[in-house]
């Protein structure tokens, strides 16, 4: 585990400089006019970033309204009997529900939950595993589809949410085995 961790963190640290160096030097050998071509590509960055603004604003506003209203407490009260039945601790429900909606919101919930129940308790390890193993599905969908102007997202959202749910069950299972 320790060797794996050192290896991966080393890889993360050198990945970007190595990639830039390799791409540019290789291209220069192939007689590509590196600077001119890079500027050409960089121009697209502005367009894409501006294009996602309306999608991002509307998606984040709807999530912010949901969060500020405290509707999550109501939602948790509704699903709690179900999760109690399966044996999932109710303390991690806020995290499971917030994770796909908001990155900063779930970061806050992870910190609060760990402070309340201890970082190395079952609940503490479970919330941090949940945070570490899934992405903010709504944000990713808004940004990625927004960049190419997709309005009909078809089965993307149900797929993302089902995958989040599977990740949640898997986290409960693997943390249970570990601790």
């Amino acid at each position: 585990m320790e060797i794996f961790r050192t290896f991966v963190s080393l890889l993360s640290a050198i990945a970007i400089p190595a990639l830039i160096l390799f791409f540019l030097v290789y291209a220069a050998f192939r007689r590509v006019k590196v600077y001119e071509v890079a500027v050409e590509g960089a121009k697209e960055g502005f367009d894409i970033a501006v294009r996602i603004i309306p999608y991002l604003v509307l998606m984040l506003v709807s999530i912010a309204i949901f969060r500020a209203s405290g509707a999550m407490d109501v939602f948790i009260a509704i699903v709690r009997p179900l999760t109690d039945l399966v044996g999932i601790p109710a303390e991690v429900l806020p995290m499971a529900i917030m994770r796909p909606l908001s990155g900063s919101g779930s970061l806050g919930i992870m910190t609060e939950t760990m402070q309340a129940y201890g970082t190395d308790s079952f609940i503490g390890v479970l919330v941090s595993t949940l945070f570490g193993s899934t992405e903010t599905t709504f944000y990713v969908l808004a940004v990625y589809f927004g960049a190419v102007g997709i309005r009909n997202t078809r089965h993307a959202l149900p797929t993302g949410l089902l995958a989040d749910f599977i990740a949640f069950l898997a986290a409960v299972f693997f943390v249970g085995v570990l601790l």
Binding site: L24, Y26, R30, V32, V37, G41, K43, G45
Partner: peptide, 15 residues
Amino acid sequence: IMALWLGVMKVAEKA
């Protein structure tokens, strides 16, 4: 960050 990476990517693509 988009400009930086899309610039590098364009070079890699051309090569």
